[in-house]
Amino acid sequence: MSDEVLVARGLRKAYGDRVAVQEVGLVLRAGEVLGLLGPNGAGKSTTVGMICGLTVPDAGTVTLSGGVGLASDAVGYKRRIGLVPQDIALYEELPARMNVELFGALYGMAPALLRRRAGEVLDMVGLADRARDKPATFSGGMKRRLNIACALVHDPEILLLDEPTAGVDPQSRNAIFDNLVRLKRAGKALVYTTHYMEEAERLADRITIIDHGRVVAEGTQAQLFARLPAAQTLHVEIDGEPDDALLSGLPGVQRVGQRLDISVGDIGSDAGPLLAALARRGIAVRGLASARATLEDVFLQLTGRALRD
């Protein structure tokens, strides 16, 4: 497709006998956010490292629009990508503006353009008034925002963000979200890795889930929700605690004290028959509530509930 700005195919990376990434492929389009999710150690950061050129893949390719790749034009390739790493990467004793200008100079930006862009990106992330201050005096959220400014100074068309909100306060997190929405509207393409499912639900147009170094699911949120046995849950408050025999024959019912949790495909069409079935069994209903499936439900369904340490 003409709007594909990055295509990764068959990425593989092993460290000794341990295969970190195996046959991972991604497609990134202009003006979209691709959420890259996975448990600890699933291969997200390794994948991001291979995409941005910091990690050399054992196999596979990454190609930008126009056929540009690391092998054919490493400098041109890297100038089109901005990276916000998982670990904060700043010179703590240099003023914020000098940090931004240093990163821009590494891309060979002309001095006049660099000065202008440094001011623009510092203003964008809300740090224009702290441009002369050192990151050593900044909060964690301010450092994260400065890292984003450093990644944007050369105006890349693709931005890779590896857990950019780790350890930040809600105000900084919302400021980061606002910046990313503006970048998306401006036509930038973003890859966003996170452990926070609500962030992916809020930001991502499409999602790729990696587990044990392989892609286990990809698609829009609606497409991922369709993989669940039930997309919604009906919570029914009842009088008393009925004998389990009364609940036999009702599919997807789990009793929790005086509440029934009933898995349904569609509340609008399924709630009526379920309530009628409860009434026939003499079970009095005191209240109803509903909840839709979340991205966390999909994530746990695909990757399991076991701890990953």
Rank of each mutant, 00 (worst) to 15 (best):
A189N: 04
A279R: 14
R9A: 12
I283H: 02
V75A: 14
L159Q: 07
S45A: 03
D297P: 09
G140L: 10
S139V: 07
Y192E: 05
D3F: 03
A71V: 09
G257E: 14
A271Q: 15
T194M: 07
A289C: 07
A284E: 08
L70S: 02
Q223Y: 02
M142E: 14
G213Y: 11
L180Q: 05
Y91K: 09
P164N: 05
T165E: 01
L278I: 08
F103R: 03
K78L: 07
D261I: 11
M197A: 05
G304C: 09
M109V: 03
R173V: 06
D211T: 11
Q221E: 13
R29T: 14
T294D: 02
V215L: 06
S139W: 10
I283C: 05
K134Q: 14
Y77I: 11
E237D: 13
H195E: 11
L37T: 00
L102K: 01
A110G: 13
T165K: 04
L54V: 12
C150G: 06
L34Q: 04
L152H: 09
T294S: 14
L246S: 03
G69Y: 00
H212F: 00
R18V: 13
S65T: 10
L250Y: 03
V121H: 02
T220N: 09
I88N: 10
E92N: 08
R280N: 11
P242A: 07
G268C: 00
A8P: 10
M109F: 06
A204V: 11
D133E: 15
E198L: 12
V21F: 10
A8S: 13
R80S: 05
T46F: 11
E237R: 14
L152P: 04
L122T: 08
G43E: 06
F225T: 07
A14P: 04
K134W: 05
G240P: 04
V181G: 02
R130S: 14
V100Q: 10
Q301L: 04
T194K: 05
L161P: 04
N174R: 15
S248D: 14
K134T: 11
V100E: 10
E120V: 03
A291R: 15
A151C: 06
A189C: 08
V153E: 02
A226S: 14
S72V: 05
R286F: 08
L114W: 10
L295Q: 11
Y77M: 08
L36W: 08
A204L: 13
G119Y: 08
N99A: 05
